[in-house]
Every structure is written in structure tokens, then in C-alpha cells.
Computed example of a mutant assay.
Amino acid sequence: MADEPIRVTVWGEGRHEKRDANVAALYPEGMHETIAAGIAEYAARPVVVRCTTLDSVDQGLPPSLLESTDVLTWWGHMAHDEVSDDLVDRVQAAVLAGMGLVVLHSGHWSKIFKRLMGTSCALRWRNGDDRELVWTVDPTHPVAAGVPSPIVIDRQEMYGEFFDIPAPDELVFVSSFSGGEVFRSGCAWRRGRGRVFYFSPGDQDYPVYHHPDVRRVIANAAVYVAGGAARDVTPIAYAPVGWYA
């Protein structure tokens, strides 16, 4: 129902803030809390936002929480390999059943994103204190609503092509960097009954998740991926109809 709050779960590793004083200074409550606050502030529909981290029970996503999640956001960087394959299986099943997924920045290298994309999801990168311009290439897309073009991010890690992903169903943003690189920075896909959106701006070494336009994009993305098909966990039954010779 459109008038019911979207149940958003913000998942993060929660590691950098504990180990790096510079990251802790930028995100004293954790990147996940900053991302959650931006969604709550900018979402165009009512939302209920919860945070969880890798070091919580069941790696932050026990079945009961996943089952009550309409949209999951995912930020990971230093502990991708620690995420269990069982959890990846459950998140994948939830997306295929209709849960929305927003993958952020270095989450491109997460097990769940690579599983859903079916490719390496590798890219070029340089942590060189670049300026990033995020250009809207589909101004009619809901994720671009209210967002200036370009978004100007004064200090950011560079992500560049080639980005080994399947061709997006919808390409919303393309970024350019002060070093001359370009990157498909806002991409959408359908997987089963669910929607997936990837948005690249946001690194632990820079205050990008405090940027109001970045926060608006993530909030828009959460609302957008929540608008997929109604959640349905019923297995699809296939009846044999014969063989092709």
C-alpha cells in the first residue's frame, strides 16, 4: 500500500569507524547511521529505517529482519569475504521475491552484488582526492527527482570504466572525474520480482554521505526499489511440456 511506511534496513560493515580515527571523525555514529538519517530526511514516502552491521547477530540480517524488510541498502569494503554464502543465498532469494536492494560504492565488490549481476563487477579506481561530477542522463527517472545535474562532490575516490556489469536496464547517472575518467555511477536492474539500484558516490575517507544531494539520491533509490512487484516467496512451479529434438 502506497500509504504504508517503507521498511528500510541499512546494512553496513561497521568496521572502518572502529579502526580508523579519521573515519570515526567523519562518521562518529557510523556510516550506516549517516546513510539511514539521509533516507529518513529525504524520502518522498513515509519510511521506517533500521540499521544493522556485519558484527551483529546473524551478520546483521537474521531471517526475521530480512523478512520484514522492503528495501535493503548495502555498504561493504574491507570484509566482503566474511559475509557467509548462506546470507547471500537468503538476500538473493529475498530480492528475487520482491525486496528492493540499493548497493552503495564499494558494495560493487560484495558477494550479493556479484551474485545478482553474474559478472566480476570489477572497475578501475584511484584514491587521489578527486572532484566528481555526477551527471543525470535520465532526468525523467524517479531516482533523479529533485537532484541537480551535475552533483558536485569536491573530494572523492575515483571509480572509472571499464565497470564489468551487465548493461543496466536503466542508466540514470554518469560521473566524470578531475583525472578525466568517466563511470556509470547510477544503474538500475530488475532481478526476479525485485529491483536493484547501484550508486557509486560514497567512500569512508570522505564526507560524501553528508552531502545533501547524495543523500537525496539514496533516499530516492530506496523509494524506487520499493516499488517493484509485491513480495512473494512462493516457489515457481514448472510443468514439463516435452522435449525439443
Score class of each variant (00 low, 15 high):
Pro150Asn: 07
Leu96Pro: 06
Val48Phe: 07
Trp11Lys: 06
Leu66Gly: 03
Phe163Gly: 05
Asp58Gln: 11
Val71Pro: 02
Tyr244Ile: 00
Gly12Met: 13
Glu17Gly: 10
Ile153His: 13
Trp75Leu: 15
Val225Glu: 01
Met158Glu: 10
Arg19Ser: 05
Phe177Tyr: 07
Arg19Lys: 08
Ala230Leu: 11
Lys111Gly: 07
Pro62Leu: 05
Glu29Cys: 00
Val174Tyr: 02
Val214Met: 05
Leu123Pro: 06
Pro212Gly: 09
Ala94Ile: 08
Val49Cys: 00
Pro63Ser: 06
Asp20Thr: 01
Ser110Gln: 13
Ala97Ser: 14
Arg90Pro: 09
Pro212Gln: 06
Leu123Arg: 11
Ser120Val: 05
Arg90Met: 08
Asp203Ile: 06
Gly192Ile: 02
Leu66Trp: 01
His32Gly: 14
Thr140Asn: 11
Phe183Ser: 11
Ala222Arg: 09
Val174Ile: 05
Arg190Asn: 05
Glu67Thr: 06
Ala43Leu: 11
Glu161Val: 04
Glu4Asn: 02
Ala237Ser: 14
Arg195Val: 01
Phe173Ala: 01
Ala21Gly: 14
Tyr224Thr: 10
Asp86Trp: 08
Val225Asp: 01
Arg191Gly: 00
Pro148Cys: 03
Leu72Thr: 11
Leu72Gly: 10
Ala237Ile: 15
Ala226Asn: 15
Thr52Asp: 08
Val48Arg: 14
His105Cys: 01
Ile6Leu: 10
Asp81Glu: 13
Gly38Asp: 01
Glu82Arg: 11
Asp86Pro: 01
Arg184Asn: 09
Ser110Gly: 10
Pro28Gln: 07
Met158Arg: 13
Glu82Gln: 12
Ala25Lys: 08
Leu72Val: 10
Val91Gln: 14
Arg195Ala: 04
Ala79Val: 15
Trp74Phe: 01
Leu116Ile: 10
Gly192Lys: 03
Thr9Leu: 15
Arg191Glu: 02
Thr69Cys: 05
Arg216Cys: 08
Asp55Ser: 11
Arg231Gln: 07
Ile218Asn: 05
Val182Glu: 13
Val88Thr: 14
Gln92Trp: 12
Asp169Trp: 00
Ala97Leu: 10
Val88Trp: 08
Gly98Thr: 07
Asp203Gly: 09
Pro46Arg: 15
Arg50Pro: 03
Gly194Leu: 03
Asp3Ala: 00
Val49Gly: 01
